[in-house]
Computed example of a mutant assay.
Amino acid sequence: MAHIDYYFATISPYTYLCGVRPADIAKAHGATITYRPIDLMNVFSRTGGQPPAERHPNRQAYRLQDMRRRAGMTGLKMTEKPAFFPTNPAPSSYAIIAAQAAGGGDLGALVAGITRACWLEDRNIADDDVIRDCLTAAGFDAALADKGLLAGAEAYHRNTEDAVRLGVFGAPFFITDGDERFWGEDRLADLDAHLSGRI
């Protein structure tokens, strides 16, 4: 059975634009998927990237155009400059880690819900009430927002270290068990093709 490690950041617009497609692709191929939220700014600083606000104006302008186009291609509406970006991604990441450990809900829907809260609904995903709402909507116990915080912090750090060690430099980033790497929402079709044996 194929496996996908999905490295992502809850504040990443391109993670938002993935929606639930990573889970759908895994299911279509009978693959398992592990959700691995990372500290994207830490990864950027160690792999040659920069936070959006520190990039050259040319890059910032292109990013906004690209986000608009990719939103159109995926059919998802989004706010190009959300009210709560950047914000602290750690609390929402810990909740995803806790939900993955607990089970019982739809993890793909949880990731999509948290990123949608940031990139469409102008909600602060560092806020515990927002996180609880997203957990409930995805079928998880809202109390997971307050549980396993130390374990969540440790897993978040470990995911980030593993990401850098394994070649991750942005988000979303997908690594298969054969060490095929796919960076970006616009490479989901390539991931699908790889799992189909077409490439």
Rank of each mutant, 00 (worst) to 15 (best):
F8N: 06
T10N: 15
T10E: 04
I11G: 01
S12P: 01
P13R: 10
P13Q: 09
Y14C: 02
C18S: 14
A23E: 08
I25S: 03
A26I: 04
A31T: 10
A31G: 11
T32R: 12
T34L: 08
D39Y: 13
M41F: 13
R46K: 15
G48M: 07
G49K: 08
G49I: 01
P51R: 12
P52M: 11
R55A: 10
P57W: 02
N58G: 11
R59N: 13
M67Q: 11
R69N: 05
G72A: 14
M73G: 11
K77D: 14
K77E: 15
A83I: 06
A83Q: 14
F84A: 02
T87Y: 04
A90H: 08
P91V: 09
A95H: 08
A95T: 11
A101I: 06
A101N: 11
G105S: 14
G108D: 03
L110A: 07
G113D: 13
I114Y: 11
I114G: 03
I114L: 15
I114H: 10
T115C: 03
C118K: 00
W119D: 09
N124R: 08
D127P: 09
D128F: 07
D129S: 13
V130Y: 03
C134P: 05
F140W: 09
D141A: 14
D141H: 06
D141S: 11
A142F: 06
A142H: 10
L144G: 10
D146P: 06
D146C: 10
L150F: 08
A151I: 07
A153H: 09
A153Q: 15
A155V: 05
T160R: 03
D162V: 01
D162T: 04
A163E: 05
A163H: 01
V164P: 01
R165E: 12
R165K: 14
P172G: 09
I175T: 07
G178Y: 00
D179I: 06
W183T: 00
E185C: 13
D186T: 14
D186F: 11
R187N: 09
A189R: 10
D190R: 04
D190P: 00
A193G: 15
L195Y: 14
